[in-house]
Design a protein around this nucleic acid. Structure first.
Lengths: 214, 214
DNA sequence: CCCACTTTGTGCGTGCTTTCACAAGCGCGT
DNA sequence: ACGCGCTTGTGAAAGCACGCACAAAGTGGG
């Protein structure tokens, strides 16, 4: 489930605060979901709480980490060291959660050799070699839209089956390859859409429904 | 619907290529969805295509832009000018789509006054004044997790009802305020989860099911 | 004018997700 | 030992999204 990471983060926050057990109700509030849904999610992954008490925080953290595969560490390559790529490379939040930035790649020769977040930027031509030698299993694409599909294809051919795509294009990949997309302007557009709906509802609803009279 | 922006982008790509009409089948492929779903989405927003021909690209672009509220322009404030905030400020893709970065705010006095993407960074204390004077309607939070809730509350009190949150916390906001969350490590965790499931299925499935024999 | 072909719009079945509601289980105080 | 209050786990209902498949509607050629 896509909600497990959210639960995990909420649990880790509780753990930092020294909480030992938590009820589904409290955890659900912290994670922003319905408590029945949370219980079903947890029961579905086989974890057990204790009736009348709740869930043991530490045990649950371990179980979810295990289910998510965070007990192993994943080598991540970032392709496209522009502003966004650099921001991701510098972001410290990955290392603590089982992810290790293993390589930075870029097509610009002027970029190659520079050091970003204590890693040398290497040329995109060495993608296949880097993936092999560093054991990269997740590729993060932060290139311009035009380059993204080419990079994705090369990643897949090099054996990478998990891709996180920040470029604003729909990637075409063979079955069995998992692509997740993060698109900043799409998020803004969805916000604008809802904001407009709210504005329309607040007094101009008739206009949208075609019922304006005056 | 959350898919309209994807359709819009695909349509704009077609428009750039000079295409005049497009069938639901072709557009659906470009957008990576089922053609029936696309037709239902479009019919649901009232747009009309022509049977036997398809949809007129230009008309559809206009209709979707209108539905998404992109015919007006939205003033966006970015709060937290770290690596990510700077990357977003520098990213040019917003202006062309109805969004205008109107203000940059940060709590660090050393940051205030610096110029990023030809905008002066202002101190967070002037948030309320900036929101008012610039007519900010969307707030983007790229602060550390600890500061995010405080910023969100202040944004809401200043009248902002749309928030895009990059900080890894669940924001608590009053009803009527729309929060969207983008969390990079959650995306990676979901990828890792699926990657592990794939790996387990490929030959070690029995282990997970508790059926290991040897 | 008519017919064959193309493409939209949508009714309907299916399966998943969410939520309610409650029985079963656990701890604690007496 | 017993009962009361709290919390989990889950059956069942409701709601929703997806996709098939087909009728309706338009185009173009003969």
């Amino acid at each position: 489930m896509a909600r497990l990471p959210v639960y995990l983060r909420a649990l880790q926050a509780l753990q930092d605060r020294g909480t030992l057990t938590v009820s589904s109700e409290a955890l659900a509030t912290a994670a922003g979901v319905n408590s029945a849904k949370l219980r079903k999610d947890l029961s579905h992954l086989g974890s057990y709480g204790t009736r009348g008490v709740g869930y043991e925080v530490e045990y649950l953290v371990y179980q979810i980490s295990r289910e998510l595969g965070l007990t192993q560490d994943w080598a991540v390559a970032i392709i496209g060291i522009g502003n966004l790529g650099r921001a991701l490379a510098d972001y410290g939040g990955f290392g603590t959660r089982g992810f290790r930035i293993a390589a930075l790649l870029d097509a610009d020769p002027g970029m190659v050799g520079q050091s970003v977040a204590s890693l040398d930027v290497r040329h995109i031509d060495s993608l296949e070699e880097v993936v092999r030698s560093k054991g990269v299993s997740i590729g993060v694409i932060t290139t311009p839209a035009t380059a993204a599909q080419g990079v994705a294809t090369r990643l897949v051919e090099a054996g990478v089956t998990s891709i996180l795509n920040f470029a604003p294009v729909v990637l075409n990949v063979p079955e069995g390859v998992d692509v997740r997309k993060v698109d900043l302007s799409i998020e803004l557009q969805i916000l604008a859409f809802h904001a407009q709906r709210r504005a329309d509802g607040d007094g101009r609803g008739a206009e949208r429904a075609g019922l304006e009279l005056t």
